[in-house]
Amino acid sequence: MSRLLEGRVAIVTGAGRGIGRAHALELARHGAAVVVNDYGVSLAGEGTGESPADEVVAEIEAAGGRAVANAVDVADFDQAEAMVRQAIEAYGGLDILVNNAGFVRDRMLVNTSEEEWDAVIRVHLKGHFAPLRHAGAWWRNEAKEGRQRAARVINTSSGAGLQGSVGQATYSAAKAGIAGLTLVAAQELGRYGVTVNAIAPVARTRMTEGAFDTSAMALPEDNSPVVAWLASEEAGDVTGRVIEIDGTRITLETGWRHGPSADAGARWDAGSVGPAVRGLIAEGPEPEPVYGA
């Protein structure tokens, strides 16, 4: 097997189970030293007292790889900084950040509580921002000091964020935000040698098993080879992209694009907006259906 990541240092958040665990194992197999982050919470984000990160570290070490456990809350700004610092102090630097941590509290929109909204937005969206902000600042400083690294960020969006998903308004909003964050971060950090991409993985995990029939879904590890390649130096020309992975199929998501337009030549009159908008809708493609619609 080729070792795409020999000598590189990675952080994988939410890596104690499921897709994150598969990512950590795959990166280690390709030669990366891995900081395995997992806060040890239930599917709904409640503390369990477990230490799944330690189990993944033991598995990596048993296979001859290098890894260290980390149990911080990635949505805590200061703890996220400490996690980045741990990677740098343990292995002499940081090359790869895989933002994966998250949980769900699925409800129809009118049944969603403020606490559920805040918790899901926090772990997904702030839990991407905080590690990315601290890693990005370190990479910027390295570049300014003449030590630019071939750094890679792989965020985790979802088809729910790209096409929408009935019963998952909060999760869909968070995952859509991650896609938008990916686009901006790719532009802002590119000058420092950093690429920023996102995946939209499909897999049978704790997060999907309770929502619908998962018997035909891909396995968590089916997503990880794409992450390993995006994390490699070879992928330096790919940034600002969202890639959906569904078993053996990978799809480049095209996202929002400017479609048909109409120009009134002056301020629109409310009465003329309706016919104009309906005309544009007739010209444009049909939107993809929302999951569960």
Rank of each mutant, 00 (worst) to 15 (best):
A150P: 11
R140Q: 13
A137C: 06
Q163F: 15
T156N: 02
A137S: 09
R140T: 06
W138H: 15
L162T: 03
A143V: 02
V153Q: 03
L132H: 05
R147P: 05
G146A: 14
V123K: 04
G164F: 01
H134Q: 10
H124W: 10
A137P: 04
K126N: 13
N155A: 06
A130H: 12
R122H: 11
G127S: 00
E142I: 10
G127R: 08
G161E: 04
Q163W: 14
W138K: 02
L125W: 03
L125I: 02
P131F: 04
A150V: 13
N155R: 02
A143L: 01
G161F: 00
G136D: 01
A150W: 14
W139K: 01
A130N: 08
Q163M: 13
Q163C: 14
L162P: 11
L162V: 07
V120C: 02
F129W: 07
E142L: 13
L132F: 06
G164Q: 10
A160K: 12
G146E: 11
S157H: 12
R152W: 06
H134C: 04
G127N: 00
G164V: 02
N141Q: 15
A151P: 09
I121S: 08
A160R: 13
A143D: 09
R147F: 12
V123L: 06
S158M: 08
A135C: 00
R140F: 05
A143S: 08
E145W: 10
G159P: 01
H134K: 00
G146H: 04
G164E: 00
S157A: 13
G136L: 02
G146K: 09
R140L: 04
G136P: 01
V120Y: 02
R152V: 03
A137Q: 12
I154R: 03
A160T: 06
G164S: 04
I121G: 03
W138Q: 13
E142Q: 15
G164H: 08
R140D: 03
F129Q: 05
G146D: 09
V120S: 02
L162Y: 08
N155G: 00
A135L: 01
A135Y: 04
G159I: 09
A160D: 10
E145G: 12
F129R: 07
H134M: 09
Q148H: 08
L162N: 03
G146R: 15
S158N: 05
N155M: 03
E145R: 15
S157E: 02
I154M: 09
R133A: 12
N155H: 08
V153C: 04
A143I: 11
A151H: 01
K144W: 14
V153R: 00
T156W: 06
P131K: 00
G159F: 11
A160G: 13
A119M: 07
A150R: 15
K144M: 15
R147Q: 15
A119K: 09
S158R: 07
A143W: 12
S158W: 10
A135N: 04
H124A: 05
D118P: 11
A137L: 06
N141R: 14
N155Y: 01
R133T: 07
V123I: 10
R147M: 05
T156Y: 09
W139D: 01
P131D: 02
